[in-house]
């Protein structure tokens, strides 16, 4: 089968590559680009661990062919930190609020939360829970993930973060 030439932007860097059409975006990122932050969890489109940001959309990269990303701009967890290397508001939120235990779902959670906050800078708890409904976490029970996203939203908006009563 003929390989396809693709050109795309990943974390601000222009990348050209030849890919087999059947190569999934997650495999291209992990194996050809050595960007192993996005994870393969369920491999069936349910868990969201492979979520990356693609042209301002949260996309499950295990359900997308690399050829479909031709011309796209992609952000992975490796491209989320601030330019000076300090943690982004979301990364800091997950750290401060204990938004992870094993950490497997975290890259997908952060990329999904990133897009959610771009579209809705001050989401309610309900909107956060619906917003991350395509991402599964088997450790935390989601409570601290929701708090992490609320922390990040407050920090970005310059408003005080008040931890919800349990």
């Amino acid at each position: 089968m003929t390989k396809s030439h693709i050109e795309l932007t990943i974390n601000g860097r222009t990348v050209e590559a030849l890919v087999e059409p059947r190569t999934l975006l997650i495999h291209f990122l992990r194996e050809q680009q050595n960007l192993t932050g996005a994870h393969i969890g369920c491999d069936t489109g349910h868990c969201g661990a492979c979520t990356v940001d693609m042209d301002d959309m949260s996309v499950k990269s295990c359900m997308t062919f690399a050829v479909q990303a031709h011309g796209a701009s992609i952000t992975t967890i490796e491209g989320v930190a601030n330019a000076d290397g300090t943690l982004s508001a979301l990364q800091e939120g997950f750290r401060m609020m204990h938004g992870l235990q094993c950490g497997f779902c975290t890259p997908g959670m952060i990329l999904r939360a990133h897009r959610l906050l771009q579209e809705n800078p001050a989401p309610t708890e309900d909107e956060i829970r619906h917003g991350i409904s395509g991402n599964l976490c088997r450790c935390t029970g989601y409570v601290n993930i929701v708090k992490s996203i609320q922390y990040a939203a407050a920090k970005i908006n310059g408003t005080p973060f008040q931890e919800a009563a349990e």
Partner: peptide
């Protein structure tokens, strides 16, 4: 339908 990620595509 499905979840947010899938609704984008």
């Amino acid at each position: 339908i499905a979840d947010p990620q899938i609704r984008y595509k």
